[in-house]
Design a protein around this nucleic acid. Structure first.
Ligand code: FES
Ligand code: FES
Lengths: 151, 151
DNA sequence: TTGAATTCCTACTAATAAACTAGGATTTCT
DNA sequence: AGAAATCCTAGTTTATTAGTAGGAATTCAA
């Protein structure tokens, strides 16, 4: 499994916030309830997202979280990298330092670089708005403006 | 890190066997020494590769392992899947069963499918012969036939 | 025919990482 | 004042990874 719960739950959170975009702050408890996840765990995940500037928070009663910019401006790759670290297949690709002693000889490293590139091509080409659109398509919801009023 | 030591060491083993292809059986200890890895650990990794038919073994003195077919016929993806299992980002992609309760609504799943596809495109398009070629290119070795005589 | 080299197999252990939980301090609205 | 929320640190539990240990079975070669 490439993604741990950090990445997977984080993506669900961000999708939920994207669906709520423009409607004010959304408390974490609501997100946790909608997705049937532990809100205390989600707390830990949203913290780095806030510190990275992807979401903003409002403290106190009637507070909550919202996206810091519009969904189309947030790439899935950003979210994943913040929560999971890089998805490189081996450390040497990550840090530029060879893992094995035979630095110059290493043909596996070339492979790792290609895998990394393949993954990044996907996750950096998809943004939250794309996922929102997918969400509506999946639910046959043609009336996009009112998409969330029945939730 | 996408690949654990199982996949990474396994790839190195298989590359070593590919470099040795056509020269008879190679004892695991030699592979371990060349790559500075624990031979008892590698034992565990080569077992499933043999059971999957990618390598053949010869027991007893002067025995060892060799590729069951030519390097160009063994895709990197096969090796990785045998040693790591599928590289899917989430279980639902793997088993076809939804992870979350909101099966139909799930937009993250579409993302996971695209990531999976991106990875498979890479690892199934590269075979061991490609890695052997890379290896020789990296080492500026124009005399390919004699590549291993100095090791 | 004996001994060394090797694969093969199962089970165990140690270390690390993942997945949460707990508790409380702080902020803000009503 | 009190409720609703974020924020922060530190635990705990569980699962996975990475590796060891020990020995049985096989085969070559002297
Ligand atoms: S440099 Fe990364 S495995 Fe060799
Ligand atoms: S179906 Fe896989 S996360 Fe929803």
């Amino acid at each position: 499994m490439i993604l741990s719960t950090r990445g997977r739950y984080g993506l669900k959170m961000m999708l939920e916030l994207a669906l709520n975009y423009g409607k004010g702050a959304m408390p974490l408890k609501d997100i946790a309830n909608k997705q049937s996840l532990s809100d205390t765990y989600l707390e830990q995940l949203i913290s780095p997202l806030r510190k990275s500037g992807l979401v903003t928070s409002t403290r106190g009663a009637q507070g909550g979280y919202e996206l810091a910019k519009e969904p189309s401006g947030i790439k899935v790759g950003e979210i994943i990298r913040i929560l999971e670290g890089s998805l490189a297949p081996a450390e040497c690709v990550l840090e530029g330092e060879p893992e094995c002693s035979k630095a110059d000889y290493c043909a596996t490293r070339l492979l790792y670089e290609k895998i990394t590139e393949g993954i990044n091509n996907v996750i950096d080409s998809i943004n939250l708005q794309d996922m929102v659109d997918d969400y509506h398509r999946l639910n046959n919801n043609t009336n996009i403006k009112r998409r969330n009023e029945d939730e």
